[in-house]
Design a protein around this nucleic acid. Structure first.
Length: 774
DNA sequence: CAGTGAGCGAGCTTCCGCTTGACTT
């Protein structure tokens, strides 16, 4: 056994560091936090100074025992978790959980994984910073109190299984409020006029486009303007040239990597992180959960060398970027290639593409700026008051643009800068054609996963390690759905002036189509309304930023963490109790009208299982009847007629193979029921209009698919089947599933083999880790 | 997985931030 044990947070880091340190050092990892509050209970003693009740996390028990044993056998334990609030707490937890002694343990920190940085850290140890630990305790306890007092209130007032928290509830609010903005947005239109010119005399007949600097509010004005331009003379009024430059973006942080991978590669936030994790574990990139744009001296030097070698000296410019994001803790470097001279890697297509993005972004960040020349031209007409303007851009020196261009979120990328022909003042121009086209203003963009992350980072809510999980949480709770939506056709009016004649035309464009955007659900909207009404301070966009300032004071030793929590918890808990006692169910109920058949009231509201329509009052003698809303329908927008339609199920379509075929709508959407079997109806078919023949098609299709699933059946025992599942072949006996041991040919199994597999407890599927939905 | 929704009451759910595998039908 070596004389020293170093404990870091990540196993990949442990492996690298062990190589730097030599035989005297063993390096292990804690896999993150090892202690936490118990998941089942509040675990904060609110009566007694908010004392947190920590325990060793259930999944870390084995690890802690192991580390404890190792710690006893070495002379010195070096606690080398990250240098931030959470890292300090991890060291403190390890100190406690491993029963360490002051004289046998030291706290060390480093920001980059280089031999010098590690050796330097070993030479400059310190003790655990209790103030920083206390700041973490305040953060942890605050989040627990908010989450574990608000969520149960939601279970009682809105719906079971819901959740609320400092981070997720603000993320939901952003999406709900953006949707409200969009719904309230009134699109207006104006006519945009473009003209194509060439010079009248000379050789260069290059065509360029200029836009008239006024937009016309309506059809008549646009038409009048174009009519006036018939027969007009055009000439260059002014030519203005000025130099410009562009600088590269800083290297990637978690947030910017997620955004660019989404824009350029179309990866979801979770997917990007999974791929980055693989690259990190293969030693190809630095740590992928970081808020720092800093590069180590080693990386700066390596980038410089690579750029000078490949592109030449004039392309290199060493830069140090400083972070602008709120609450950044900068325990790591930016995300960069481990080796700058490795411009591509082996791996899956996804890994290659993400690595390429990281390599280019990092290299570009160390390259010189691009030099441009911008040209603005004004064209005058003898019959117009204002000018037509055109702008062009010429790249004089490409610099970093040679390697990498950052994408933007702007959806209307209409500011295309054309290359302009050489033009002089007063030069005569020929008009080729002029068009005036109706343009509609666009509502603010809906969030994508990545643009939501950017907004969260801007507000300082969430951390690099939680962006992806938070986005999955708000979708799992069904506050938000990621969806594509079809647009609607919109008529566009257009004029064209050519050869002295004006042509009118109308064409259609698709407006409002969305791909992979986040939409709030009814339940998300309702929960947000509830929180805004009773807990507006918690979902305030500045709540996190403000408490972060308090945590900073605690970390600086200027304030006591329990005092801070106390001043928050008093009023917060009062509000919890008040809302609990004084407000009723928060169901978002909306009255739609009176049922023409019975005269009873018809409502929509959120029930135990989601949005539903109710006919009849809850407190009336006769039990009300209910129907769940269908996919795509919403509490806010469903009409009285649509609501009544939901009660037309189940529909009996007729007989097939001697038994009834029934269409109905269930928990999982519309389905066909026949011989006690269920068949889902696809989205593009309307369950209210489906015919018997169409239903039979659905039944037969499913039967075909089932047949393909079967690899092997046995006449002797029909409960035994070898099937093809989502995760490869498996065995099912009497509705119990079993894994087939590796290396067995599923098609060659005999009935006896199957029984044998079933007997071995090894082949039982593991217990479900995730909870059942219901 | 499957057609629920009153009310009774038991027993369940839930936060954020650090980390990876093991595993799913």
């Amino acid at each position: 056994m070596a004389k020293n044990l170093v404990i870091v947070e990540s196993p990949a880091k442990a492996k690298t560091i062990e190589n730097f340190l030599g035989k005297e050092f063993t390096v292990r990892s804690s896999f993150g936090h090892v202690m936490d509050l118990n998941k089942k209970k509040l675990s904060v003693d609110v009566e007694n100074e908010f004392e947190p009740q920590y325990e060793i996390s259930p999944d870390k028990k084995k690890l802690v025992t192991e580390l404890k044993k190792m710690a006893k056998e070495v002379d010195m334990v070096w606690l080398a978790s990250d240098e931030d609030r959470e890292g300090e707490a991890i060291s403190w937890h390890l100190f406690n959980a491993l029963d360490l002694k002051e004289e046998h343990s030291k706290r060390i920190v480093f920001h980059e994984i280089t031999k010098n940085a590690i050796l330097n850290a070993i030479e400059n140890p310190r003790s655990i910073d209790k103030n920083l630990v206390n700041a973490q305790q305040a953060r942890r306890v605050l989040d627990r109190l908010v989450g574990y007092e608000l969520s149960p209130l939601l279970w009682r007032k809105v719906k079971p299984m819901l959740s609320a928290g400092r981070v997720q509830s603000v993320a939901v609010r952003l999406i709900v409020e953006r949707e409200e903005e969009i719904q309230n947005f009134k699109s207006t239109s104006a006519f945009r006029t473009l003209a194509e010119f060439t010079v009248s005399e000379g050789k260069n007949k290059q065509v360029f486009t200029a836009e008239y600097s006024e937009r016309f509010p309506d059809f008549d004005n646009a038409k009048a303007f174009l009519e006036k331009q018939v027969g007009a003379q055009f000439s260059v009024f002014s030519v203005e040239k000025k130099p410009g430059k562009k600088s590269p973006a800083p290297p990637f942080t978690t947030s910017t990597l997620q955004q660019e991978a989404s824009r350029k590669l179309g990866y979801s936030v979770a997917n990007t992180m999974r791929i980055a994790q693989n690259l990190y574990e293969s030693g190809l990139i630095t740590y992928m959960r970081t808020d720092s744009v800093n590069l180590s001296d080693f990386a700066l030097a390596a980038a410089k060398e690579e750029i000078e070698k490949v592109y030449g000296k004039e392309y290199s410019k060493t830069r140090n970027f400083t972070t602008k994001s709120k609450g950044a803790q900068e325990a790591h470097e930016a995300i960069r290639p481990a080796y700058m001279n490795k411009s591509s890697v082996d791996g899956t297509r996804e890994e290659k593409r993400l690595y390429d993005l990281i390599w280019k972004r990092t290299i570009a960040s160390q390259m010189s700026e691009a030099k441009l020349e911008k040209t603005n031209i004004q064209v005058q007409s003898t019959t117009a008051d204002k000018y037509f303007v055109a702008s062009g851009e010429v790249i004089k020196f490409d610099g970093f643009l040679k390697v990498y261009i950052e994408d933007s979120d702007e959806e209307n990328g209409e500011q295309e800068s054309d290359l302009l022909p050489p033009l002089a003042k007063d030069e005569k121009l020929d008009l080729l054609k002029m068009t005036s086209t109706e343009k509609f203003t666009k509502y603010p963009p809906r969030y994508t996963e990545a643009s939501l992350v950017r907004k969260m980072e801007e507000l300082g809510i969430g951390r690099p390690s939680t962006y992806a999980p938070t986005i999955s949480t708000i979708q799992k709770r069904e506050y938000v759905v990621k969806e594509n939506r079809d647009g609607v056709d919109r008529k566009i009016q257009n004029f064209e002036l050519k050869d002295g004649k004006i042509k009118e035309s109308v064409f259609t464009e698709i407006a409002g189509a969305e791909k992979g955007k986040l939409f709030p659900t009814d339940i998300g909207t309702l929960v947000n309304r509830f929180l805004m009404k009773h807990f507006d301070d918690i979902v305030d966009y500045n709540f996190t930023a403000n408490v972060e300032k308090e945590f900073d004071d605690i970390a600086a030793g200027k304030n006591d963490w329990k005092k801070i929590i106390k001043s928050f918890y008093g009023p917060f808990h009062d509000k919890i109790e008040q809302t609990q006692d004084n407000s009723g169910k928060f169901s978002g109920e909306r009255f739609l009208g009176q049922d023409p058949k019975t005269g009873k009231n018809v409502f929509v509201k959120i029930g135990r299982y989601g949005a539903m329509v109710q006919i009849g009052d809850t407190d009336s003698e006769e039990k009300p009847s209910f129907a769940g809303l269908q996919k795509g329908q919403s509490l806010e927008t469903i009409t009285f007629e649509e609501a009544l339609k939901l009660f037309e199920f189940p529909r009996n379509l007729g007989d097939f193979e001697g038994e009834k075929v029934v269409v109905a709508i269930g928990r999982f959407g519309p389905y066909v029921n026949h011989k006690k079997l269920f068949y889902s109806i696809k989205k593009d078919q309307n369950p209210a209009e489906i015919s018997l023949d169409q239903a039979i098609d659905i039944i037969n299709e499913k039967r075909e698919a089932e047949k393909l699933k079967i690899i092997k059946e046995f006449k002797e025992d029909e409960t035994v089947q070898v099937l093809n599942g989502r995760y490869g072949p498996y065995l099912t006996i009497d509705k119990q599933n079993y894994k087939i041991p590796k290396g067995t040919d599923p098609a060659g199994l005999s009935l006896e083999d199957c029984y044998a597999i079933a007997k071995d407890p090894k082949n039982l599927p593991k217990k479900k880790v995730f909870k059942k939905k219901k």
